[in-house]
């Protein structure tokens, strides 16, 4: 059983070839870090995995369900896949608690009492239960991103996608978000993380994927990836981000 199976994936924006012949298999419980220069297609790749972006050729199968234009399959996949965005994308007009509770009610018809109880449980887990009555605008960036993680977890997904979750944060807030993600990884969540936090990659990744120009150039365990990169582009990239 694989969590995610991507084969022969190609995507174009107009005539721009954003993803080229991507093959990727993710096992349940596997933690994958995707890195690469900007414009390399790493965000596009994970946005294809819950069909925020459509693809033109190839196949994506998530927990046994193929991703097509079929809306029933699509909502089945989105129920299983949680996503955390670079800019948090919390709903600014709702309280923190409501940000976590309302999606459950709207997407699954969960009863309010149950939805709020689950929301409180996950806010506890990301260690900000005391902020539940506040609005997102009243929280720091790090706190907002942890709420966003709790909101995604409330849907009890089997896979979590992180799209540069710490890129928009001030340096002193990156740590609290990474710690939350590490705790999640230690609990056995299947995770695909687009990030440049190489410390995080070393600490939790089972596999690091390097992308460039819409292709997967190299994938390896963190030891091999950082210790013995094969590809010249990988070495160049690592030199640029690890000073």
């Amino acid at each position: 059983m694989t969590a995610i199976a991507v084969s022969g994936l190609n995507k174009w924006y107009g005539s721009y070839h954003a993803l080229r012949d991507i093959d990727l298999t993710v096992a349940p419980g596997e933690r994958i870090v995707v890195c690469g220069p900007s414009g390399s297609g790493k965000s596009t790749l994970i946005r294809c995995l819950n069909r925020l972006e459509g693809h033109q050729s190839g196949s994506i199968v998530v927990n046994g369900t193929p991703l097509t234009d079929d809306l029933k399959n699509l909502s089945a996949v989105r129920r299983e896949v949680g996503m955390v965005f670079q800019h948090f994308n919390l709903f600014p007009h709702l309280t923190v608690l409501e940000n976590c509770a309302l999606p459950q009610i709207l997407a699954r018809g969960t009863r309010r009492a149950e939805a709020e109880a689950r929301a409180r449980r996950y806010l506890e887990r990301v260690r900000i239960p005391e902020q539940s009555a506040k609005f997102p605008g009243q929280l720091s960036g790090g706190q907002q991103q942890r709420v966003a993680i709790a909101r995604a977890l409330c849907m009890e997904p089997r896979v979590m996608l992180f799209d540069e979750p710490t890129s928009a944060l001030d340096p002193e807030m990156i740590k609290e978000v990474l710690e939350t993600m590490i705790a999640l990884a230690d609990d056995g969540m299947t995770m695909i993380v687009v990030t440049h936090e190489m410390g995080f990659a070393r600490r939790v990744a089972d596999r690091v994927i390097f992308m460039d120009a819409g292709q997967i150039m190299e994938q390896a365990s963190p030891e091999d990836f950082f210790g013995n990169p094969h590809h010249a582009r990988t070495r160049e990239f690592l030199e640029q981000i690890v000073h």
């Binding site: 909502s75 997407a107 909101r151």
Partner: peptide, 23 residues
């Protein structure tokens, strides 16, 4: 309204009309 709002709702599996009405 930032387009990330609609994307977040989509990623959470909230149906289109409920996204419009509530988000």
């Amino acid at each position: 309204v930032d387009k990330g709002q609609g994307e977040a709702a989509q990623a959470l599996g909230i149906p289109f009309w409920k996204t419009i009405w509530h988000i």
